[in-house]
């Protein structure tokens, strides 16, 4: 098997960054969801409620964006794109 090339074509590169995004999203989510614990003294205010649900909703939107593009970019077999960076996606112009 040939070694994976060090630099990828634009599409492969995009796909990898997309996977990075998918990996980082829960980290961002954890940070956002920790805020109520930092501001523990105040209790349940409407401000807190609005913040929490807005953050939650934002995360869902971000996840929808990233996941949809990832699913489209991934080869149909669902193989790991990061494992086969050399494989060019078949005529996929997004």
């Amino acid at each position: 098997m040939a070694r994976a090339p060090l630099f990828l074509a634009r599409e492969g590169y995009r796909r990898r960054r997309l996977a990075d995004m998918a990996r980082l999203l829960p980290v961002l989510g954890a940070a956002l969801f920790l805020v109520p614990a930092l501001d523990a003294r105040d209790g349940l205010g409407s401000g807190m409620l609005i913040y929490l649900f807005s953050a939650w909703f934002g995360l869902i939107l971000a996840s929808a964006f990233v996941s949809a593009r990832l699913a489209r970019a991934a080869p149909s077999e669902g193989a790991d794109p990061s494992a086969e960076p050399a494989a060019e996606p078949p005529e996929e112009a997004s």
Partner: peptide, 8 residues
């Protein structure tokens, strides 16, 4: 939620 959006 965190686990699901971290599905990757």
């Amino acid at each position: 939620t965190l686990v699901l959006i971290g599905w990757w």
